[in-house]
Simulated assay, not measured.
Amino acid sequence: MTNKRKEGQVKNGSYPEQVKQQFEELQEQLNITFKNKNLLYQAFTHSSYVNEHRKKHFADNERLEFLGDAVLELSISKFLFDRYPHMSEGELTKLRAAIVCEPSLVIFANELNFGKYVLLGKGEELTGGRERPALLADVFESFIGALYLDQGLGSVFQFLERVVFPKVEVGAFSHVMDFKSQLQELVQQSNTGVLHYEIIDERGPAHNRTFVSRVLLNDQELGIGRGKSKKEAEQQAAQNAMIALNQSLHKEE
């Protein structure tokens, strides 16, 4: 038993009541209840906090970050593999890299207000550590690692279905997901006709408008898409058209 994992072995009582109350708030916000609260605390414990509380024997989040990085990459890979059967290995790799890169992880962490809950040493706090991109990206990964250990891959996937996957599907990573170009190339290769996009609906107030676009091939509708901009709606329409074409090809086989 000497090699027993150290994660989560710190007693709950070692953390101040105020800290524990903050994490109750976070769990309520996320609609996730950890079985082992110590894993949650550890996910947000920076090494600077550990260094300033040596007598408490806290564990920092670096090992959880290591695990979370792998779990996140696997989960994203599975989602992309299932969602985009028409994509090549190279395209899937490029898209995954855009999703798991530091700037993207920082966006996810900020939207969840993770920075508020990070346990920092005084020095790190004073130098703006709570807003440091690398720290926020690491905390997002360590949270994924903690959630995986506490509840398994299924819970991680459910969490990502709320936080990450919808962004992929509405075109947040369209800079590496140019479906319009991919669809155009597909049509040119098969020499089946000419593509045409049109906006068929606009909904909502000016500050929160949703556009609906459709793509046609020789006046035959191939796909419909929605987005916060015309460009995003067209990309979604092209994406759905490619999915439909791919399914049609599989049926023919």
Rank of each mutant, 00 (worst) to 15 (best):
residue 108 F to R: 11
residue 117 Y to A: 03
residue 227 G to R: 03
residue 234 E to T: 10
residue 181 S to L: 13
residue 83 R to K: 07
residue 73 E to D: 09
residue 105 L to K: 14
residue 83 R to N: 00
residue 6 K to P: 15
residue 164 V to E: 08
residue 199 I to Q: 11
residue 132 R to S: 05
residue 147 L to Y: 00
residue 160 L to P: 02
residue 5 R to V: 04
residue 2 T to W: 13
residue 22 Q to F: 05
residue 101 C to Y: 03
residue 147 L to I: 00
residue 13 G to C: 09
residue 28 E to M: 13
residue 178 D to T: 02
residue 146 A to D: 08
residue 27 Q to A: 00
residue 233 A to H: 08
residue 227 G to M: 03
residue 83 R to G: 01
residue 245 L to I: 09
residue 233 A to N: 07
residue 189 Q to G: 00
residue 162 R to V: 05
residue 108 F to V: 07
residue 128 G to N: 12
residue 239 Q to E: 10
residue 105 L to M: 15
residue 242 M to P: 04
residue 4 K to G: 13
residue 213 S to N: 11
residue 69 D to Q: 12
residue 45 T to M: 08
residue 118 V to L: 12
residue 69 D to T: 11
residue 148 Y to E: 00
residue 40 L to V: 13
residue 90 G to N: 08
residue 123 G to S: 09
residue 7 E to V: 07
residue 204 G to C: 00
residue 26 L to S: 08
residue 160 L to C: 13
residue 122 K to G: 06
residue 60 D to H: 11
residue 122 K to I: 05
residue 117 Y to T: 04
residue 51 N to Y: 08
residue 26 L to G: 09
residue 223 G to P: 09
residue 210 T to K: 08
residue 219 D to G: 03
residue 36 N to I: 03
residue 175 H to G: 09
residue 210 T to R: 12
residue 2 T to D: 15
residue 202 E to D: 01
residue 185 E to C: 01
residue 45 T to G: 03
residue 226 R to Q: 15
residue 116 K to Q: 12
residue 112 L to N: 06
residue 180 K to M: 14
residue 235 Q to D: 07
residue 78 K to C: 07
residue 222 L to H: 06
residue 243 I to N: 13
residue 84 Y to P: 00
residue 126 L to A: 06
residue 94 K to W: 00
residue 141 E to D: 12
residue 111 E to V: 05
residue 134 A to M: 15
residue 19 V to D: 08
residue 92 L to F: 09
residue 92 L to V: 10
residue 15 Y to F: 10
residue 124 E to C: 11
residue 58 F to W: 07
residue 69 D to A: 05
residue 115 G to Y: 01
residue 46 H to L: 03
residue 145 G to H: 09
residue 142 S to W: 04
residue 207 H to G: 05
residue 62 E to V: 09
residue 176 V to Q: 12
residue 234 E to Y: 04
